[in-house]
Design a protein around this nucleic acid. Structure first.
Lengths: 245, 245
DNA sequence: CGACGTGTTGATCTCTCTCAATTAGAGTGG
DNA sequence: CCACTCTAATTGAGAGAGATCAACACGTCG
């Protein structure tokens, strides 16, 4: 009943999103099939699924993941409102990763050839999509750096900061009063390549040290300076890496 | 002197690549600025560089990487002939990762707005680019799964198989007599989030067990079955992961 | 010939994993 | 209202995969 036209999409309000022309919005609208509501913990796309459609996450959180046959799971990235779901899969081919919701979520469902139609009928939108896809990859790059080269403490600090920033950008108050944090410690562990137990102990240690607080599903950063230092992220005065010689 | 027109690009011969119309080739040609030759070990794009152009790798190998300020390095992906270089960077923004050659290499250099022009003037090519970008991401996804959840042995087995496949696809003989393998053990270590020493010991163990051989810069897979089992990759009879319940 | 890059190997050390148990809260059914 | 069940968070103890430290071998090169 309450399906909204794309031109009334609540996401458009946010400063994060690029303004589009009426024609572009009509185009997107014409490719949109329906909206779906999912509960927390539901699997949207199964690993190896072949006929997965294209989605856009309207509200809620989700994550992409892969598993090994003995059950070991790696979360590849977290998805927030406005993110695409399912572009990564080689079209027509089996999806290489699963997608599951972290919270109740609503999504726009697009027809399978939406990606192509978008390119064909609006190069601008097409260009934006490759930009978004490239951006998605850069998030995975960041995680790979963490998992490959950062210690447990550093990984967690990095995750908290980056997720906080993304979530804060979706809020009117910019995260002044914390942001939603629907991950269980198991999700954090699977996203950072750590065991559940060690994740718990590390999280606890940082919290005791006063760097952050997670309470009742919300995340508060209490010492951004210290977290940033731990994460070795660039910002403030910190310059990006330069060749040493 | 020896600059070739895109229509004569040697890569087009390979079954791996999609045929394009003459118009499309002319378009690409018109956006191409020049070719460059680089020696092994040269840095193409520095981390944090802001004005990096767009490249296409014509011959040779390269890799994308990120480093932490104390020098720890993570290789994000390896680049082979035909791969794009530099799409991932947020256009206009600083490049989030560096790119360095592993071998002598030749590249096509495109003007900065080539990506946009390609989209604008050929939706087909534009679509292919988002496809390629998405594919690139799936490679990183695979690595993230390895680094996050596989043991050292498993990681190395996975890397050897995947690199072998990619390199073999570029050879007429399909890898029947091995494929070039220009990585040092340090590269393997940095690509898999392992230490150099442990990488050496693990590599040695697998080689002694008869799973592979690396000799004089070439890689030979001697027991693909065993490697595949170690890597827990799908293929042959192995089904993709399914929910256990 | 010495310097350097790459590969090898042995000996510790330690960060993180696995195993085990306990606590707390939410939901269900009687 | 209370047992019963489940999930998520915690904490302690011991084990281990992989890191770090140290040497050494070998080939290339100026």
């Amino acid at each position: 009943m309450s399906e909204t036209h794309c031109s009334a999409c609540p996401l458009r309000q946010l400063p994060l999103f690029i303004p589009h022309s009426g024609d572009e919005l009509d185009l997107v609208q014409s490719l949109k099939r329906r909206e779906v509501q999912l509960a927390a913990g539901e699997t949207l796309i199964h690993e190896g699924q072949t006929d997965a459609p294209l989605y856009t996450l309207l509200t809620g959180w989700a994550f992409r993941f892969k598993t090994l046959s003995d059950g070991r799971r790696q979360i590849l990235s977290f998805l927030l409102a406005g993110d695409f779901v399912g572009v990564q899969q080689k079209m027509g081919d089996a999806s290489a990763h699963g997608v599951q919701t972290l919270t109740d979520a609503s999504l726009c469902v697009f027809q399978r050839d939406a990606l192509w139609e978008l390119h064909r009928r609006s190069p601008t939108m097409g260009f934006n999509i490759t930009w978004l896809t490239a951006h998605e990859e850069s998030l995975v790059d960041d995680t790979l750096l963490s998992v490959g080269r950062r210690s447990a403490e550093e990984r967690i600090a990095t995750l908290l900061i980056l997720l906080f920033k993304r979530a804060a950008a979706l809020q009117p108050d910019g995260g002044a009063h914390g942001v939603p944090f629907p991950l269980t410690q198991q999700h954090v562990a699977d996203g950072l390549g750590l065991s559940l137990v060690h994740t718990n102990k590390t999280l606890r240690k940082l919290e005791k040290r006063g760097l952050h607080r997670i309470d009742n599903g919300r995340l508060y950063l209490r010492d951004v300076k210290a977290l940033t230092r731990l994460a070795d992220l660039y910002g403030d005065g910190k310059p990006p890496p330069r060749p040493l010689v």
